[in-house]
Amino acid sequence: MEIVFEVNRYNPETEEGNFYQEFSFPVDHGELEELTVLESLIKLKEEKDGSLTFRHSCGHGSCGSCAMLINGENRLACKTHLIDLVSENETRIKVSPLPGFPVIKDLVVELESFFDQDEEVKPYLIAENGSETEEERLQTPEELGQIQEATECIMCGACTSACPTYWDNKKYLGPGAFVKAFRWERDSRDEGGEERMDFLDDSRGGVWGCNKVFNCEEACPKDIDTVGIIDLLKREALGF
């Protein structure tokens, strides 16, 4: 089978603007099952065009470097297998940078604003009590269970990039920041309650901007229940 990759190309040093370049290569059935989008991009870079640019690091879904728009969905390139994208009739794979963020080059986007929003929700433990002791604070497996899913976030940006509210309003903190807020806020050891609620409850940037489009939940490579988490934060803002 001949796979055709359509890859977004953009070089900031030329006047050209962006365009999609086609690369094709043959694969047998075994390769089709084995190969990921990331491995294919690496192959293209190494065999066809050394200037093809994208980020990657761990290669197995733990570092968050390689999120991109693959056939219309935000996904991690390293965890997306070709076999899940093509069929007898459709052998084209279209790869674009994450939407909603400025493009630096080809598939690389500027995530500075995403990380700034993370910083706004105070992504750290706020706790006066217990840090001076020589022993661990206690936390039951049930208490940990409440935040376990949220601790899995790898900050790849796929969720916020998929959010229509964020596209319209760059002040909106976005699902990525809310998951992080929840992770710390609901940690049984954390005492930051009020401090974080101020801006989570804010009319422009806060949780009320969420219209439950569910794009973020579909985009999350870690299957985090982002909308459920935002709902819980809304309830908390209302004082439940």
């Binding site: 206690l138 936390q139 954390d190």
Partner: peptide, 15 residues
Amino acid sequence: EHMGVPFSRTSMGTL
């Protein structure tokens, strides 16, 4: 732990 690392716990809540 004091910096917030979500270490897995025993049923008693210790590390």
